[in-house]
């Protein structure tokens, strides 16, 4: 328990420390944009594949559970859209992105730590916490909503076409269900989750990398911890958002 509070305290201090003696805004801006583009482009392929298939599988499984015929097939569209927007696109996709982006951030910063690159920044008088964390956190908070938007869209589209292809539900029925039960607030919740997850994954992973000590083995361990703790923080945040907003 003591260790948990120690890490939470150190994490809070790290995040607070990024705002001390900030460097030139233009440099942070360029770095953040570069990171955001890299995060988004690097994750796009996996997001497209996984989201499309998750959407398809959802439709088939929901159709299977509604086999009794008591409910109209159009309900499939509404359920797929709601679960995709509210939970699957933001949360499940973020678990995958924690593995892809979080481990990348932790290993990048961890390698910089063990090869004295962070010491080099500090000797130069650069706020290493700010320089390394701000662009990555900002990039996470930009690229996650973008990726999650793409993901939600593809889940719905994937579900729609899988339903049509398998004969479970037609595109018209699916669309009708989606529009009938549409609630714009779900989109708001999705973006709130996306921004929170982007912040959590990038900052927790950066924390793990920043305090790495040792060598290559420890960098690997930091990378693993980054994914595990990011996922744990995300489930807690997911519960809190659901409890507070829904």
């Amino acid at each position: 328990m003591y260790k948990l509070f120690y890490h939470i305290g150190r994490y809070v201090l790290l995040v607070r420390g990024i705002f001390k003696t900030p460097e030139k805004f233009s440099i942070y801006y360029q770095l953040a944009i570069r990171e955001a583009v890299s995060m988004t482009n690097g994750s796009l392929f996996i997001v497209v594949i996984i989201s499309t298939f998750i959407g398809g599988v959802q439709t088939i499984q929901i159709a299977y559970q509604l086999e009794t015929g008591l409910l109209p097939d159009s309900i499939i569209g509404s359920v797929v859209a709601a679960t995709s927007i509210l939970e699957l696109a933001p949360t499940v996709l973020s678990f995958i992105l924690a593995g892809r982006i979080g481990s990348n951030i932790a290993s990048q910063i961890g390698t910089m730590r063990v090869t004295e690159q962070i010491d080099a920044l500090e000797v130069m008088g650069i706020n290493s916490k700010g320089y390394l964390l701000i662009p990555r956190i900002v990039a996470g908070m930009i690229s996650f909503p973008v990726l999650i938007t793409i993901s939600a869209f593809l889940m719905v589209v994937g579900g729609m076409f899988a339903g049509q292809a398998g004969g479970e539900v037609t595109v018209t029925e699916f669309s009708q269900g989606m529009t009938e039960y549409y609630d714009g607030f779900q989109i708001v919740v999705m973006y709130i989750k996306a921004v929170i997850y982007g912040f959590l994954i990038s900052s927790i992973s950066a924390y793990q990398g920043f305090y790495t000590s040792g060598g290559a083995l420890e960098v690997g361990e930091a990378s693993t911890r980054a994914v595990v703790f990011s996922c744990l923080a995300m489930v807690v945040a997911d519960y809190l958002v659901a409890e507070l907003l829904l």
Partner: peptide, 15 residues
């Protein structure tokens, strides 16, 4: 610090 230059053991160049 702007007046300090340092060469590290492993050079510490940014990869």
């Amino acid at each position: 610090r702007k007046n300090i230059g340092m060469l590290f053991q492993g050079s510490a160049l940014f990869d």
